[in-house]
Amino acid sequence: MAASSTLAVSVWRGKESGRFQTFEVPRHESQTVLDVVTHIQRALDSTLSYRFSCRVGMCGSCAMNVNGRARWTCRTHVAEVAAGDRLEITPLANLPVIKDLVTDMTPFFDKWAKARGRFQGGRTRGHDFARVLPESRERRLADAAIECIGCGVCYSSCDVVTWNPDYLGPAALNRAWTLLNDVRDTDNRARLGAVAGDAGCHACHTHMNCTERCPMKLAPTASIAGLKRAAALAALKGELGDAVTK
């Protein structure tokens, strides 16, 4: 990439209502979108707010919409996404905007709690270790979905969240699926009730935006499909109660 060229970067400024502000940013080789945002904040306009931490694709805090697609900006090279030397950077969709590129993640994580995304064990320190065979079906299913780091890319990309703000969303449901396959967990009956129905897994239209855009290459759609089947089976057996609040 020629270092002499520049990039026209439209950045969202404000809260829910606001405007785009355009900056000219010099291009460099192997430049990431996070490098671009950092350059704007440090060299052009120090009032720009954005969120990042690790810069190496581990924490997930730098997720933003780049040219209309939610991405980790630290792991997105400008060369991959800049169409005609232009970038448009907005905060993640489906979340309240605090300022500029910073969203309030509270609704996202509240839904993890609603989906009973916390491990609930039944053992004490007096018990022996639980034996979970690595090749067991449950362990393999949990393994396939466990690496979510909660960046919100899937939640921001989900049309159903846009249409139905009560919908728990791919990440919370994916988390619930890992716990449903955790043979040590004792809360699964209540969890299945919490994640089922019109605001839960059964609202998913299988658009697969979450699966396509997950930077961890997870498949929340598959996890949600698993939840749908498990909850439907429980409903047919009369074992699916309404969510119990604890």
Partner: peptide
């Protein structure tokens, strides 16, 4: 998640009926 309408079980049974 019930919104004054159907119970969670009824919502899931509707989903099942639609697939069937």
């Amino acid at each position: 998640m019930s919104d004054g309408g159907l119970s969670i079980r009824a919502q899931v049974l509707l989903w099942t009926a639609q697939r069937a």
